[in-house]
Design a protein around this nucleic acid. Structure first.
Lengths: 224, 224
DNA sequence: GTATATTTTTAGATTATTCTAAAAATTGTA
DNA sequence: TACAATTTTTAGAATAATCTAAAAATATAC
């Protein structure tokens, strides 16, 4: 805890990658996993891990994988905060589509200015969720939790409101656009097809479509 | 004209430095001048000039200095456009002071997305001038010209409206803040003191102060 | 117009981040 | 538990941007 030496964009990206990989289970993250998620050779990852350990951003034991230190977690959280706030800005203020903002936010999140982030937060009205429904940590790094399930867990006849998406890729979000599915859209599970678990759904009490199980698992809904 | 290879932040900074140095007289820029303005050793500048010449962003002849190519000028202009638009955003939307935005805009100007800049421009209402009164080039790179003189050229008794500042440093702008001088402020030249050419001025038809000649030369005014 | 001063370039190193190939450690298997 | 497969690390090299010191070119001064 300290090292007021500001981090490079590269170092920040490693921290973020480690955070994302350990988000679910909070288990140590393997060199290989980082390598794959960042498309960087394992040997390069090892080098950077040494450097980050030196800076006390991670706990690293050779061959044993890494965990973020408290400091490292804080860095990751602040990056996520910035990323998501910028996404809100791009969608709500600049009228970008939710499928167009990831890459730009990926650049903007590295701009270093605490007052910038906090003013942006205020300007946007202290949003709690980004355009994909992901929670935005507050200044202290606290995430607002939301109870949600995936569409695929509903029982036939049940209706949910879309509150988030698991997958953020442009193709997936574009597909949802085509189906007129956006955050807040009402989705009713009409029928589960036994053969392949695909789902017949009704969108906004209008058209019915079939979506695959995989799509259903990527749609977070809250009960209506 | 081409080289779709996107430039590094470093390369962009060299282009911008060369642009600023040749802005006034449009003369070739010396290695040493670039070195000084960027606080980088002359030898490093030479290396980069070779690289930029290779990419056809500058016309470079050994020992003869450099000029920006058309392509180079366009890169510089787009950077200035981005810088100034972001400054408008920071001041008008996020309530930063005009003395606080330079460094942040210096980072934001390197974000690469044409649609981002153009949407930002629209969002801000297509401003023609930034918070320091500097003109913002449009999409095509055209600057709006404004007829202006400096406060120090007024004749005693004459009044001007502040439309810009030559110097952008935080100390200078903070000094103006203290004097309650901002863009749009009415400034009347009361008297020129022969001894050292310092100026007695009246601010917003209120308090009178003495400013040095140098300060007067850094204040752009239009006639009331 | 030659000698001196200044500017610019070259040469050789350094740092950060990356790579490939090979060695070492760990894990999985039977 | 021993061998094979996998993962991770080490070793050595490459690229981009920088540096210092020295050489080369240009400019200045008398």
């Amino acid at each position: 805890m300290k090292s007021d030496t500001s981090l490079s964009k590269t170092e920040e990206n490693y921290i973020k990658a480690i955070f994302k990989l350990s988000e679910k289970d909070d288990q140590p993250v393997n060199t290989n996993a980082i390598s794959k998620s960042m498309s960087i050779a394992p040997a390069s990852v090892t080098d950077m891990l040494k450097k980050l350990a030196e800076k006390e951003l991670i706990h690293y034991e050779k061959y044993k994988g890494v965990r973020l230190s408290l400091e490292g977690k804080s860095v990751a959280t602040q990056l996520i905060r910035k990323h998501r706030l910028w996404e809100v800005f791009l969608v709500n203020k600049l009228q970008f589509g939710w499928d167009q903002v990831h890459d730009i936010a990926e650049e903007l999140e590295h701009i270093k200015s605490e007052s910038l982030v906090n003013r942006l937060d205020t300007f946007l009205g202290n949003p709690k969720f980004d355009p994909h429904g992901d929670p935005i940590p507050n200044r202290e790094g606290k995430f607002t939790l939301r109870n949600q399930t995936t569409l695929s867990t509903l029982v036939p006849g049940q209706t949910g409101i879309l509150v988030g998406v698991r997958e953020h890729s442009t193709p997936f979000l574009g597909y949802l656009n085509d189906l007129k599915i956006a955050l807040g859209t009402e989705l009713k599970l009409v029928e589960r097809i036994e053969f392949d678990n695909s789902l017949k759904i009704e969108i906004s009490q209008q058209q019915q479509t079939i979506i695959t199980e995989k799509v259903g698992q990527n749609l977070f809904v809250k009960f209506k």
